[in-house]
Simulated scan of single mutants.
Amino acid sequence: MPPRFLLALMPLLFTTVAHAVDCDNATNQGDMNQCAAQQFKAADKELNALYQQINQRLKDSPDTKKLLVSAQRSWVAFRDAECNFSASGVDGGSVYPLIYSNCTTGLTKARVEAFKTYLKCEEGDLSCPVPGA
């Protein structure tokens, strides 16, 4: 996360204490930014839970587990770089956190779906790197 993103989020740290936001009816930029950050946090939490499940299934396959770790690190780097690029048109603006969070949320949800697919592999599916439960 770039420092400018952290600076853009600083006001949110103080506004979150002041009031709860109704994300379905958010009308100001600060509330919309906060809601977008919450959506990303929820998607990231789901992603991490699925990652742990896959990691657990690979406990007897250390080489495959290392490949998962490497792939995930590369994916996180890609996600962050892609979203920095995607939001670069509003860099420094009050809408930057919203655009950046929407991007990270979208890419994270796509990764969640990929992980869910890995966790549904049929026994004997040679195209799947994750053994069945």
Results as ranks from 00 to 15, higher is better:
Leu58His: 07
Gln29Asn: 14
Ala20Leu: 07
Val69Gly: 02
Tyr51Gln: 05
Leu47Thr: 04
Ala110His: 03
Leu50Ile: 02
Leu12Trp: 03
Leu7Trp: 09
Leu12Asp: 08
Tyr118Arg: 03
Leu58Trp: 06
Gly93Asn: 04
Glu113Ala: 13
Thr27Arg: 08
Gln34Met: 13
Thr64Pro: 01
Phe40Met: 01
Ser94Glu: 06
Asn102Trp: 01
Val95Trp: 03
Val95Cys: 06
Ala26Ile: 08
Val90Thr: 10
Asn55Met: 08
Met10Lys: 15
Arg57Asp: 00
Cys128Ser: 01
Cys35Thr: 02
Ile54Gly: 06
Lys45Ser: 12
Phe5Gly: 05
Leu67Ser: 09
Tyr51Thr: 04
Ala81Ser: 15
Leu68Ile: 08
Ala133Arg: 14
Ser70Ile: 09
Ala42Asn: 05
Cys35Ser: 02
His19Phe: 06
Gln52Ala: 15
Ala8His: 02
Met10Gln: 14
Asn33Phe: 00
Thr108Gln: 04
Ile54Tyr: 06
Gly132Ile: 01
Ala71Lys: 11
Gly124Lys: 09
Ala71Met: 14
Asp60Tyr: 04
Gly92Met: 05
Leu107Val: 03
Gly124Tyr: 10
Asn33Ile: 02
Ala37Ile: 07
Gln56Val: 03
Pro2Gly: 03
Leu47Phe: 12
Val69Glu: 14
Cys83Pro: 13
Gln29Thr: 15
Val17Gly: 02
Val90Arg: 04
Gly89Ala: 09
Val69Lys: 15
Met10Leu: 15
Thr105Met: 05
Tyr100Leu: 13
Cys103Pro: 10
Gly89Arg: 05
Lys59Cys: 06
Ala26Lys: 06
Ser74Cys: 04
Cys103Arg: 11
Phe78Val: 00
Ser70Phe: 02
Pro131Asn: 11
Gln72Asp: 09
Ala77Met: 03
Val112Asn: 09
Arg73Asn: 12
Leu119Ile: 01
Asn25Leu: 09
Ala43Glu: 02
Lys66Ser: 11
His19Tyr: 13
Ser88Ala: 12
Leu47Trp: 08
Thr15Pro: 02
